[in-house]
Nucleic acid binder design. Structure first.
Lengths: 201, 201
DNA sequence: GACTCATTAGGACGATCATCCTAATCATAT
DNA sequence: ATATGATTAGGATGATCGTCCTAATGAGTC
């Protein structure tokens, strides 16, 4: 059954192109050209452009969830896990400088297009938000967990936006440093309060 | 001479539509419909769509410079002036929640389109960056002035991006509070060092 | 009133797009 | 080998777009 494989390749190609050129500016011809199939054959695999977008978003949701799960397993502490998130900025630095953040730019574009898939795209943010919230809860900031999660999200989004505008490598490095310092201060205050609560026992 | 007035109205309408719908997704018909002139008459005022974009960016550059100049006059201290910048998030809160930041989203779109006017759009960021840098220099952070300016820019961009995604009023208010607190701590450390340097005299 | 020149309206053009349709091709089972 | 159903290629269609062209209109001058 090769149909499954072709479908995967279409989603993969569309994913890349939507990121690099934007959703609206990417045509069926573009995707077909990358995949190497004819333009007209597209409708056997996807009934509409919106359906491809939906598949791409679902693919990204799946990949994102897998990534978060892996971090949850591999990194020893909540602090280290949050640093895993921050370090995407470093890992994808070159792509971010050229195309911005895949999640932020997609949500922004769909908001302007008033596209119905917009709510689906925001679920990508939801994944990171809930995951970060969980980490901060584990750090002992139960009350502020969601606010802190949103703060880290916003911070990284801002870094991506300006890094894209100025194509500035050093700026990304500096901001990552700042976030890690900020995060460390937050976790140390937690450790201290944990110490003091330990002392009570 | 009514030509001048019509030209202004075209730029004004294009400015709004580019912000609300994006540049690529806004057609001549859209702009003509808002202005109330015929579609074909457009080429008497502007030879191409890129020319309108250029005019819109120049208009924004002019308005932005005027705004910065006004803040420079009206606000008494560098700290108060930086707060003026932060408070755009509050003043334009509803629009930001619907369409994001006008500068950030335009630069992001033009980056994806690989559009030649991209460098012009970034000059909008340059205006804020240089102005903020000047304020931080006046606050005594001469070495870090540009880094701090970029930091404030990135922070506000991130807030705009997430406020747009989640359409969250309270989040904006919270982040503005955080920025102001952060800024206050920065200026108080300056005042302290100024005090100590005063004491040396 | 006739002439000039700026301004306008509206259609024509070619390109691109998403979508649809149909005939051709392929693999597989009988 | 033939039949069947999945898969493909490529053109047709109608809509939209940026751009161009031209005839009509308007205002101001001689």
């Amino acid at each position: 059954m090769k149909t499954r494989a072709i479908r995967e390749r279409i989603i993969e190609a569309a994913d890349q192109l939507f990121y690099q050129q934007g959703f609206a500016h990417t045509s069926f011809s573009d995707i077909a050209g990358v995949v190497g199939i004819s333009r007209g054959n597209f409708y056997y695999h996807f009934k509409s452009k919106d359906e491809i977008l939906d598949a791409v978003i679902n693919e990204r949701l799946q990949n994102t969830q897998n990534m978060l799960d892996m971090w949850e397993e591999d990194a020893p502490t909540p602090e280290a896990r949050i640093r895993c998130y921050i370090h995407i900025l470093l890992t994808n630095r070159n792509k971010i400088m050229r195309y911005g953040c895949p999640v932020g730019t997609l949500c922004g574009e769909l908001a302007k297009l008033d596209h119905c898939e917009r709510t689906e795209a925001i679920r990508l943010f939801d994944l990171f938000r809930a995951w970060l919230r969980h980490q901060f809860t584990q750090l002992g900031h139960k009350e502020d967990a969601d606010r802190l999660a949103m703060h880290v999200l916003a911070w990284s989004q801002g870094v991506a936006t300006l890094a894209n505008a100025y194509e500035d490598k050093d700026f990304i490095d500096q901001e990552i440093q700042m976030i890690c310092t900020w995060l460390e201060a937050y976790t140390q205050s937690t450790k201290r309060s944990q110490h003091s609560s330990d002392a009570l026992h």
